[in-house]
Design a protein around this nucleic acid. Structure first.
Length: 500
RNA sequence: GGGCCGUUAGCUCAAUUGGCAGAGCAGUGGACUCUUAAUCCAUUGGUUGUAGGUUCGAUUCCUACACGGCCCA
């Protein structure tokens, strides 16, 4: 939108504020950056809320505070205002005759949302609220746009996502969700660093996408004259690092999948992936359980988490169940004798309305049926184990039963939170699996993997036996903040274009 | 992809059977020296998501589209 049309469509509230800004400009720099504060609201409350009126009068603590004006109550010759900074809010007490009638008159014209700086002595009002008795008061930034309604705030979900900056100004709940998300990531680092894991960064632009069954975004590198793919997972690079001798490695990674949006899916999402040499699926399941339990204890201080009205006890050992056991529990027609029979599985899938392709084997059919009939019932926390090799092209086959791999997924509240497995480190087996994937891609499966020759070469040097894990950080953050949608835990989620 | 619901002032929401589009907050002007959603008086503010249709008349009924939400696939 250009300036002209902006002016024409601008509503009167903005026009009035713009006029005030014009006046400020005419009297000097309207956007000063020479005010320095020496305290924030939270510190002051923590340090002085317990003090008496008398002890504060004695101490005469002078503070410089700054923030956005969120409340303004003007009386004849005295006013109250509340300013909000990163740590909370503090009240300003403004007497006309303490700051001069001219300043006071100017202050009366300031608006909610303006950013102000103030200095003065800390004291307590008659009602006992810690406040700053203002001696110096400055307007630091004129806000041109009106704040949302002061009591209801901004509740429109779409507006909150599109204008996250306003959501964060007015919704404490929203600020606390993102604060917890940040703490979660800090926790993950501390947890893994303490176990001697090494954090790394691997490419986000891949010449060959790999590491997950997912459709990638494509981009183009001009100088190299080649297409590149935004990573769908960092797995194959992290496992190259196992080959390189980084025996415990992790990456907190943004990955990208060119698929639909939902309450569980954002096209870009954040994941923790880790790999541990000389460990199997059992060890990594234990690590997963400890990590999630400790995350809840550290961030929320409890084992029992309520998510969307249901309680989940993370303090108990997580349940473990095989895919086939769950399939039999939820599909009366399935028995030990027919659970790997493609024809039986196919007819059950079709009965459930699942689209089945001719090249689907028993393993793929099992997983389709699992997603359709079992997944949403998995309240959990529960580890589902023994995923079919057919749908796990990077996982090690089970020693007793090569139909399945030593793979697990963790479900809580019907949602997949984590996925891990003993890693396939046999280069010839891996090459064969890549061939099968490449064939599936030729046959039209857009999510199938490419054949990655360099990865095979790396395996040929010898990758230590290992197990790995991926945890969806967005989904874990949803769970820990009781948020129903991934969009609630992503600062700027992707949305369709705003309607004109 | 299918079904249902929603979109009205900057924000939060009303509007009876199709009959003058309203309130609170915010804003503007005024009063007020301890407020807490301050209070009191006065007052401005609308392309009812977009484009069509039906009608003397549409926020209201119909169609399409856009965006969002929920459910199903």
């Amino acid at each position: 939108m250009n300036d002209e049309s902006n002016e024409q469509t601008e509503n009167r509230l903005i026009a009035e504020r713009r006029e005030k800004l014009g006046e400020l400009r005419s009297r000097g720099n309207a956007f000063p950056n020479d005010f320095r504060r020496d305290a924030v609201a939270g510190e002051l409350h923590a340090g002085y809320d317990g003090h008496t009126h008398e002890s504060l009068e004695q101490e005469r603590r002078v503070v410089h505070v700054a923030g956005r004006m969120m409340a303004k109550r003007v009386m004849g010759k005295v006013s109250f205002a509340k300013i909000q900074d990163r740590s909370g809010q503090i009240q300003l007490f403004i007497e006309r005759d303490s700051i001069s009638p001219e300043r006071y008159q100017a202050f009366k014209g300031w608006d909610l949302g303006d950013i102000v700086g103030a200095s003065g002595v800390l004291f307590k009002t008659k009602t006992g609220e810690l406040s700053v008795r203002v001696e110096e008061l400055r307007l630091l930034v004129k806000s041109l746009r009106p704040m949302p309604e002061k009591w209801h705030g901004m509740t429109d979900h779409e507006l909150r996502l599109r204008q996250r900056y306003v959501d964060l100004i007015v919704n404490e709940q929203s600020r606390s969700v993102f604060a917890l998300r940040t703490e979660l990531i800090r926790f993950l680092r501390a947890f893994l660093d303490a176990l001697d894991f090494t954090e790394v960064e691997t490419p986000m632009m891949h010449p060959i996408p790999g590491g997950a069954l997912a459709k990638p975004f494509v981009t183009h590198h001009n100088a190299l004259s080649m297409d590149m793919y935004l990573r769908v997972a960092p797995e194959l690079y992290l496992k190259r690092l196992l080959v390189g001798g980084i025996e415990r490695v992790y990456e907190i990674n943004r990955s990208f999948r060119n698929e639909g949006l939902s309450t569980q899916h954002n096209p870009e999402f954040t994941m923790l992936e880790l790999y541990q040499a000389y460990a199997g699926a059992e060890e990594v399941m234990n690590l997963t359980q400890n990590l999630i339990r400790e995350a809840a204890r550290t961030l929320l201080g409890r084992d029992v988490i309520e998510y969307q009205g249901t309680e989940y006890d993370l303090g108990q050992p997580f349940a473990v169940m095989t895919i086939e056991r769950a399939l039999k529990d939820h599909n009366a027609d399935l028995t030990d004798d027919n659970i790997r029979d493609p024809d039986v599985l196919k007819s059950l899938c079709e009965k459930q309305g699942v689209e089945v392709k001719a090249d689907f084997g028993a393993g793929k059919l099992q997983i389709e049926l699992f997603e359709k009939t079992v997944e949403r019932h998995l309240e959990g926390p529960v580890f589902m184990t023994q995923y079919p090799a057919e749908v796990s092209p990077l996982a090690r086959m089970n020693d007793e039963d090569p139909f399945v791999t030593d793979r697990f997924e963790l479900f809580i509240g019907g949602r997949e939170i984590a996925n891990g497995f003993a890693e396939l480190n046999d280069p010839e087996d891996q090459a064969a699996r890549f061939h099968a994937q490449a064939q599936a891609k030729v046959d039209g499966d857009e999510e199938a993997m490419f054949f990655d020759e360099d990865y095979i070469r790396a395996l040929e040097y010898g990758m230590p036996p290992a197990a790995g894990l991926g945890i969806g950080i967005d989904r874990l953050a949803m769970f820990l903040t009781d948020s129903p949608s991934i969009r609630d835990v992503v600062l700027f989620p992707h949305l369709k274009h705003e309607a004109d």
